[in-house]
Design a binder for these strands. Structure first.
Length: 425
RNA sequence: GUGGAUGUAGCUCAAUGGCAGAGCAUCGCACUGUGGAUGCGAUGGUUGUGGGUUCGAGCCCCAUCAUCCACCCCA
């Protein structure tokens, strides 16, 4: 037995079955994004490492990015995320584009991590962003696109919830607690880990990063305060808007949502599965008001989110919301080849039907008819045509309806209508 | 980067240290101008790889590679 060369670790092969699911997901996100007037765009897959150096978060850039030297000696990155590219694209045309910009994208990304459940090295991401407006209404609308997507695919607030927080709100609290700016990333990741550790070891962790007992107590109080958001004008407005949009039930305030990326400045959000056996955020997003400046443009406020196809795929599979019976074979008509002498006649017939707008497969060699019928059945063809010596002599074509087994011989001039009738086209 | 589990036919999996098997898939026949269903039969293996222990290893030991799961981080 010869060994087939292995695929690259962390990549997925999209056989037609999987590709159909991916296209279905693409169609869902496109439909939802367009319903809010967002325009589709795409950025390069290759970017300079420099683009991410500023703000993406140290681990993402230094340890998780695919970086290589191209033949000209430039340091190139396979994009690990899209937002910096978007900021660059908007900054480059900051005087030409119409603000507010509403853009969306769905494409591949790469991160060099150990693959596991819900995580691959090559994945697809849906990105939705609005730039040029710094209002809470913009935050809420962007998040509403996401909630609408959940609705569209059949996910309910009992299954998925979008947890919302605000960096400025938390920063104010940290200021009040005298937590230095340098210490905040550590404090953030400590807060982020609250659900993963036992209360005791979580408290001990807090002491280890240099928090005083009073600070720890105050932060615990803060996290327990479900009404803390009312102290934030931005969040108050945010919740009012999602309420007006009829999507309030998908959102809840959670002071422990921090987000790892450094560029977020205001409202941030993450979606989680409520049932909780998928212990990772489904997606994340938030407001980033300095990113265009960080890539060299004028400061343009922005807000957006990214959803990976892998985790949402797990969620949709868990709740049995992935489409079944996706038709992966486009052609409902198969033309058989009776024998070598009839082969060209069959090819001509297939071509004739295609010119009439039908999708047609012609068997590519003169093998036994049972084999060709079996193939037609396997690919899900609805109609099979036979053009043998008898039919050619009479100027007929035998048309078999594979759904009910009935077969008729019809004159050539009636063929197209007969076939259309059978496949319901 | 750290820890755990698993590698046997194309696929899913069996096999007290004692003849390497089943189901599905494939191919053939029943059925030389017709698919699905059924029956009968056939093909298919250096048990991931390399060492070791043993009269004897798929099974035990060591190494290595791969995959999966968890941590880290994140979509």
């Amino acid at each position: 037995m010869k060994k087939v060369i292995q695929s690259v670790k962390g990549t997925r092969d999209f056989y037609p079955e999987q590709m159909a699911v991916r296209v279905w997901l693409y169609n869902m996100v496109r439909e939802v994004a367009e319903s809010f007037g967002y325009q589709e765009y795409e950025a390069p897959i290759l970017e300079s490492l420099e683009l991410y150096a500023a703000k993406s978060g140290e681990e993402l850039v230094k340890e998780q990015s695919y970086v290589f030297m191209d033949r000209g000696g430039s340091e190139i990155t396979l994009r690990p995320e899209l937002t910096p590219s978007l900021a660059r694209m908007v900054a480059q045309k900051q005087n030409e584009v119409n603000f507010p910009v509403r853009w969306w994208s769905f494409g591949p990304f790469w991160r060099y991590e150990r693959p596991q459940k819900g995580r691959t090295r090559e994945f697809f991401q849906w990105n939705v962003d609005m730039l040029g407006v710094s209002s809470s209404e913009a935050d809420a609308e962007t998040a509403a696109v996401l909630a609408t997507f959940f609705q569209r695919v059949g996910l309910t607030p009992q299954q998925v919830i979008i947890k919302v927080n605000n960096r400025r709100l938390i920063d104010d609290r940290f200021n009040a607690l005298d937590i230095s700016v340098e210490k905040r990333p550590a404090v953030s990741s400590w807060v982020d880990r609250r659900d993963k550790l036992s209360p005791e070891s979580w408290t001990e962790y807090g002491r280890n990063i240099g928090l005083s007992p009073e600070q720890i107590t105050k932060i615990k109080e803060m996290l327990a305060d479900n009404d803390l958001w009312k102290q934030s004008a931005e969040l108050t407005r945010f919740f009012a808007v999602v309420d007006a949009l009829g999507l309030r039930q998908f959102f809840e305030f959670d002071a422990s949502i921090m987000r790892g990326l450094l560029y977020y400045t205001g409202t941030v959000f993450e979606a989680w599965e409520v049932g909780g056996d998928i212990k990772r955020s489904i997606l994340g997003g938030g407001r980033y008001d300095n990113l265009t400046r960080d890539v060299g443009g004028d400061p343009i406020p922005g807000v957006g989110f990214a959803m990976g196809d892998v985790v949402i795929g797990l969620i949709l599979a868990k709740y049995d919301l992935l489409p079944k019976d996706l038709n992966i074979n486009p052609a409902p008509v198969l033309v058989t080849v009776f024998n070598e002498d009839c082969l060209l006649e069959s090819f001509k017939l297939a071509s004739e039907l295609r010119r009439a707008g039908l999708k047609v497969v012609c068997y590519p060699e003169a093998v036994k008819l049972p084999k060709q019928f079996k193939y037609a059945d396997r690919i899900g063809a609805k109609v099979t045509l036979v053009l043998g010596p008898e039919e050619i002599e009479k100027g007929d074509v035998a048309v078999k309806n594979l759904m009910n087994g009935e077969q008729v011989s019809v004159p050539r001039e009636m063929l197209i209508d007969t076939v259309r009738d059978m496949i319901g086209a």
